[in-house]
Computed example of a mutant assay.
Amino acid sequence: DDLEPLVWQTLSTCYDPEIPVNIVDLGLVYRLAFEPLPEAEKVRVLLDMTLTAPGCGMGEAIADEVCDKVLALPRVGEITVNLVFDPPWDRSRMSEAAQLALGL
């Protein structure tokens, strides 16, 4: 299916405003799944993501950006973004490119 790569590409345009790296490379996306909707060829996107710190005040803003961008994609009828903190995020979840960008 061509939708999943498109969703991942779209997620990579969403950034934590406090860190100049996208949420995919930061390793904030824990799960991406799809459920069919009753409307012909529409799907619900189910996304579990975390934040770099549980007390991060930008969580709602990041989730709203994810919702807006993914809902704009063809065939996406709904999206559910769950903020989860188990397992806790740590630097090991970051891509090599993100680590290099942040000088780690």
Rank of each mutant, 00 (worst) to 15 (best):
E78F: 01
L100P: 01
V84R: 04
K69H: 09
W89M: 12
V29I: 12
S92D: 04
L28R: 01
E39T: 09
P88H: 12
A33N: 14
V43K: 00
V7R: 08
P17G: 03
E4F: 13
M49K: 04
P17E: 03
P5L: 10
P88Y: 12
R75F: 04
V66Q: 02
V66Y: 09
Y15M: 03
D2M: 14
C56E: 06
Y30N: 02
E60G: 05
W89I: 13
L28I: 00
L47K: 06
V81Y: 01
D2Y: 08
L104R: 13
P88M: 12
D1T: 14
L102G: 07
W89Q: 07
M94N: 05
A61W: 06
D16Q: 02
L46N: 14
L83T: 00
D25L: 12
E96F: 15
R44E: 08
R93W: 14
V45M: 06
Y15A: 00
Q99K: 15
L37T: 06
V81S: 00
P5H: 04
W89L: 10
D16I: 06
P17K: 08
R44T: 05
P88L: 14
N22R: 01
L32I: 03
N82V: 13
L83K: 00
T10P: 04
L37M: 13
P74H: 11
M49A: 08
L51P: 10
P36C: 10
L6R: 13
R31L: 12
Y30T: 01
L100Y: 07
I79N: 07
D64W: 01
D64E: 14
T10D: 12
L104Q: 13
R91I: 14
C67A: 14
L6M: 08
L102T: 11
S95R: 08
I23T: 03
T80Y: 07
E96D: 15
L51K: 05
V70R: 01
A53P: 02
L51A: 02
D68Y: 15
W8K: 07
S92P: 03
P74M: 02
L83G: 00
G27L: 07
L47M: 09
L83E: 00
R44H: 09
D16N: 05
R75D: 11
D1K: 12
P20V: 07
A72S: 15
E39K: 05
E78N: 11
A97M: 13
P88E: 13
L3K: 15
Q99C: 11
N82Q: 13
L71Y: 09
T50E: 09
M58W: 05
V81R: 01
L47V: 10
A40T: 15
